[in-house]
Design a protein around this nucleic acid. Structure first.
Lengths: 325, 325
DNA sequence: GCCGCTTACGCCATTCGTAAGGATC
DNA sequence: GATCCTTACGAATGGCGTAAGCGGC
């Protein structure tokens, strides 16, 4: 048995039972993968995959067991590598994929504090849609995903909640709503064209959903990936902006007025997530603690247990989370 | 990194930091071990061993960490092998090293029941002294050690207690002590030449210790490895025999008389033990449960945890143990 | 006919054993 | 000088990539 064979096996499983995809992911040839898997099956004397003709159809029960152990093997192998890499001072990297809102308004502070503690760690900040973030983390190209909402793309991740936030409504100072003296309602908003974030593909956004339950039809005239763009169009008078509360600084941007919308839309939770069997190095754990101070009691390394497995089943749902604004 | 390198590393550590001994244990050449360790150190970029000149003196902190993970890697690798071996019906073996008393008087019943459940498993019963048993289990040549007493040789093992037993005194029917109508005392025994088990090397046996605390000097004229030999010499009138209670069947051996000695010597505990990181396959676990019914609640496999580690730290000390006689 | 896994084959890297070298006691 | 680890070198093995084969859809 070779480590390479176990690595291949896991890649095949994680590529949706495709030798071809696994080979691409591992930057090697497809026949090589095929051969090593076959050798492994021969050595173990058990079929790991069910085949129909020459295509893989499923993983066998024996294969499942092997995969479980193989994951742990690779986890400990990675631990050996990362621990010794840390022992000398080799290049360490922290790669995060997140949305614009977090990258622009939340992470700067956190990253500044992180740099104080780990000035030698290189930071890699990827920005993208939920789909892109999910893709990156699934392909192991980043260490952490950070986003809001419970997208179906992230179901396999261990997600540690960080904080909550509400939306605000932005209008130009001269806008009708800026002079509103009663409390802002959805009915008010439904009367104006709206400018807000692009909706995540597939499911109904929590924003349109909020309107729907009141039998209102929001008139979303423009959507953008980030609040800066939205604000630009709000300034142009294109519509009323709805953005995350932390995306607006009333002192810096006196030409806009923010109206509290915390009661109108469900509160969002921003979390940081990683793959279940991910290896969490000390500097990565520190980053989690920085974005989620509540997680300070969790030990993500668990030299004794199998790393992230220890936290994979922790119920975060009743954590008291800070609300940002 | 290669599995072979981790295997070599562990062998070196388990051979007392000797490349030569590790090579012998692994049936390979010493330069091969040397080279692979060096390659591993190069790849990891860390010294795993401290060297004085060309000899190993100690394992470095980094090495310790690597060893810990390497053990787990090998554990899961072995799990993969054994689980798939079990999936097809390959030859499975159960190797036990124990003392004569257990092998001759205790294990027959247990092994009979074991064979009922796992008729296809080959059994390997090694018999020897404490030293020999310890040697066998340290060299991974057997699965289980089974013995009594808390020999220093077995300190590294996970030991599951099975049952307790007392000693009996054996004399020919015509012997003076056979006619004793009062309770047997150490003073009585001190008046006769004694025949008993060879003392384990190094420390004072619990038997001589019992005499010592009463300021008596036992006259041990003959020691043997097993009760059958002792009985032979008792029959010859060579002395009074002191053996384990289960080593005598009053119906089968009417020419000898057994006197209860349970109050005179400390009660002994027989345990079954295995190395901390040993892989416990289901048939092995069943064997533990057979020799130690109290252990039925323990799960020795722990697919989730790291196998035997889960039980390595369980405190058995307050278990109620059956007393055999 | 296209896609995807398997087989065949040749090249290169790695491994392992033997033999020789160096360091320490 | 004995012991133990390291280095050197040649034979054998194994891994990997290219190219061809084959089974489903």
């Amino acid at each position: 048995m070779k480590l390479q064979q176990l690595r291949f096996l896991l890649a095949v499983v994680d590529s949706g039972l495709s030798f071809t995809a696994a080979a691409e992911r591992l930057f090697t040839s497809q026949p090589g993968v095929s051969k090593q898997i076959k050798l492994l099956e021969d050595e173990l004397g058990a079929q790991l995959f069910s085949r129909k003709g020459r295509s893989l159809t499923a993983i066998t029960p024996a294969g499942e067991q092997v995969v479980e152990h193989a994951r742990r093997v690779m986890y400990h192998v990675e631990s050996i590598k990362s621990q010794t890499a840390e022992h000398r001072d080799e290049e360490r990297v922290l790669s995060i994929a997140t949305t614009h809102t977090q990258a622009r308004y939340v992470l700067p502070d956190i990253i500044a504090r992180f740099r104080d503690q780990y000035p030698e760690v290189k930071l890699n900040l990827h920005q993208g849609t939920s789909e892109q973030i999910a893709e990156l983390i699934q392909r192991d190209e980043i260490d952490f995903a950070m986003a809001s909402g419970s997208d179906e793309h992230f179901e396999d991740l261990v997600r540690v909640p960080c904080f909550q936030w509400d939306r605000i409504v932005l209008v130009p100072v001269e806008h009708e709503l800026a002079k509103l003296d009663s409390k802002l309602t959805l009915e008010h908003l439904a009367q104006f064209p709206l400018v807000t974030y692009v909706f995540s593909f597939g499911r109904e956004s929590s924003l349109t959903q909020a309107f729907n339950v009141c039998n209102l039809k929001p008139d979303v005239v423009f959507t953008a990936r980030d609040a800066d763009v939205i604000k630009t169009y709000v300034r142009m008078g294109m519509g009323v902006g709805i953005v995350a509360s932390m995306a607006f600084d009333s002192e810096q941007e006196a030409d806009l007025v923010a109206l509290d919308a915390s009661g109108l839309f469900p509160r969002s939770t921003t979390w940081i997530g990683f793959k279940k069997n991910a290896l969490i190095q000390p500097h990565m754990e520190e980053f989690i603690h920085l974005v989620s101070p509540q997680s300070i009691d969790l030990d993500f390394q668990g030299v004794t247990g199998s790393g992230a497995d220890a936290v994979a089943h922790i119920d975060f749902s009743d954590w008291p989370l800070p609300v940002l604004d």
